[in-house]
């Protein structure tokens, strides 16, 4: 059963709480879905709604909501720093779920920037015991670089095309583009996505895993340019090998970033459900 809800200090965050079916045995973990990019709370192709309904049949409470200024939400926690705003929004969402359901353990689900925000929220809130990250942070390993670039380097025509393309873009840019103003550079920096420093992420993952959090990374075929084999994380951050029982990674090369195809979403849901059912039992 769904309940539309507004929450937050200004009551301007909008969400939908999905309560489990009465026939299902209640689970002790609640699930919170974050916005994928600028998409509103239903998620790409209604993913969050369908997953919430499936999980409700299995006994999971969940909340999907719009962060400040996204979807139907107002400017609840708008601070000058986007990250601080999102972290506070998620804290408000957890406070709401805790008060409505009595739960005190949560798993957070995010795709793309939603995955980034899920990571940030976990670092700041111990009530989040697990995270599901779709195309989240990833870092190259030596094997990744070899798989990515060797086929190009071994193919002379591809090397020539790559060199010509870069030279052409540089020449055209010099001829036709005005010098970039400082304001534009600042604006570009503000709106461009940047992978956090690897050491910083590594320290945060160590902290999360040391406190017992469980992390589930699912990479799609669209992410192959940054994650191209399943054990890449364990090679790029070897300390993770001692946490394999808490840190799971799947790479499904067949899927795309937003799970456009219905049966790809069904696959995703079954993996999420399997993992959720194992949280806290390892």
């Amino acid at each position: 059963m769904d309940q539309a809800i507004t929450f937050g200090k200004k009551n301007s965050l909008v969400g939908v709480l999905t309560i489990p079916d009465q026939s299902a045995s209640l689970k002790e973990i609640g699930v919170i879905y974050l916005n994928a990019g600028l998409l509103h709370r239903v998620g790409p192709y209604r993913m969050n709604v369908e997953l919430a309904n499936l999980l409700a049949k299995k006994g999971y409470n969940s909340l999907r909501f719009d962060s400040s200024s996204i979807g139907d939400s107002g400017t609840e926690n708008n601070k000058t720093d986007y990250i601080q705003t999102v972290i506070q929004d998620i804290k408000d969402a957890i406070d709401l779920m805790a008060s409505r359901t009595g739960l005190n353990k949560f798993v957070i689900f995010g795709l793309c920037t939603g995955a980034d925000n899920a990571h940030r929220a976990m670092v700041h809130d111990k009530r989040i015991v697990g995270g599901i990250f779709l195309d989240g942070y990833s870092y190259p390993s030596f094997k990744f670089m070899a798989k990515r670039y060797l086929p190009i380097l071994l193919n002379p025509s591809r090397v020539a095309r790559a060199i010509l393309s870069r030279a052409k873009n540089s020449f055209l840019h010099k001829i036709f583009c005005a010098p970039t103003s400082t304001a534009k550079v600042e604006a570009n920096d503000m709106f461009s996505w940047q992978l956090p420093n690897k050491k910083e992420t590594e320290n945060e993952l160590k902290m999360l895993l040391s406190r017992g959090a469980e992390l589930f990374y699912i990479f799609s075929g669209t992410a192959l340019n940054s994650y191209n084999y399943e054990n890449q994380y364990f090679d790029s951050m070897p300390f993770l090998n001692q946490f394999r029982h808490q840190f799971k990674v799947i790479l499904n090369k067949n899927t795309d970033h937003t799970y456009r195809l219905y049966h790809d979403r069904l696959w995703l849901f079954s993996e999420v459900l399997k993992w959720l059912d194992s949280v806290g039992k390892k």
């Binding site: 075929g221 669209t222 192959l224 090369k253 067949n254 795309d256 970033h257 456009r260 195809l261 049966h263």
Partner: peptide, 16 residues
């Protein structure tokens, strides 16, 4: 077109 979108699917999904 969607299942044959090579920009989106790195592995062919034409049989989907």
């Amino acid at each position: 077109k969607l299942v044959n979108d090579k920009l989106r699917f790195k592995v062919s999904r034409s049989s989907y």
